[in-house]
């Protein structure tokens, strides 16, 4: 068998073109934007550029890479950028932002109290879901506060859902207040009874 010489390996620059992390985030090619998104966080000014790019990016794969980079940083600026996505009209973008937040429990603990008092009831509702990542006592107190004060039945329902996972009988007084405030809401009436059964001490469940 004749010996065949292998061709010389191509220069690295040809195999993988270098991407300017900041300029690359605005490149017309989604492949270049994706590559830039993966390295931009380490560049000076990268977090700010990633935050801007997250708001403007339309390609789901690139958005995912941006979110992953921001999640790795975990700085307040990164968290702010992800929180902005929770307000987005697009359900897919909200879901991706919430999934990213779930990977950052420390950041959730810091920003959830403010989100739970946000003027937008949709944001408060989604924040109830995030609160289950907080220390149990803090989350229970915040969820009880929603049950007692929030004017939106759906936010109370979300708070109740979280309490069924983390709470106990200490939440019953707040649940009674909620039941009285929304006595004509058929779902909350049903859900409060079901939650109370689930949250009762093991020996006292019907």
């Amino acid at each position: 068998m004749p010996l065949i010489r292998k061709p010389a390996a191509p220069p690295a620059a040809q195999a993988a073109p270098a991407v300017d992390p900041l300029a690359g985030l605005a490149h017309p090619s989604s492949q270049v934007r994706w590559a830039a998104a993966r390295i931009a966080a380490d560049a000076p000014g990268g977090v700010e550029a990633l935050s801007r790019a997250l708001g403007a990016e339309t390609d789901a794969r690139v958005r995912e890479a941006i979110l992953t980079s921001l999640m790795r940083c975990k700085s307040p600026a990164c968290v702010d950028a992800i929180v902005r996505e929770i307000r987005h009209d697009d359900a897919g973008r909200r879901a991706a932002a919430l999934d990213a937040m779930r990977a950052m429990p420390d950041a959730v603990a810091a920003c959830a109290p403010a989100l739970l008092r946000d003027p937008d009831s949709d944001v408060r509702l989604l924040a109830c879901d995030l609160a289950r990542l907080m220390p149990v006592q803090d989350a229970t107190r915040l969820m009880c506060e929603r049950l007692e004060r929030d004017e939106h039945a759906n936010v109370c329902a979300a708070a109740l859902e979280t309490l069924t996972e983390i709470g106990g009988p200490e939440a019953f007084a707040s649940m009674e207040v909620c039941a009285a405030r929304f006595s004509h809401d058929p779902f909350l009436g049903f859900a409060l009874k079901a939650a109370a059964r689930r949250m009762a001490p093991a020996g006292e469940r019907p």
Partner: peptide, 11 residues
């Protein structure tokens, strides 16, 4: 439902 983790209702 619309808002769900991993894959939302509209997706």
């Amino acid at each position: 439902d619309v808002n769900m983790p991993q894959m939302d209702g509209l997706t």
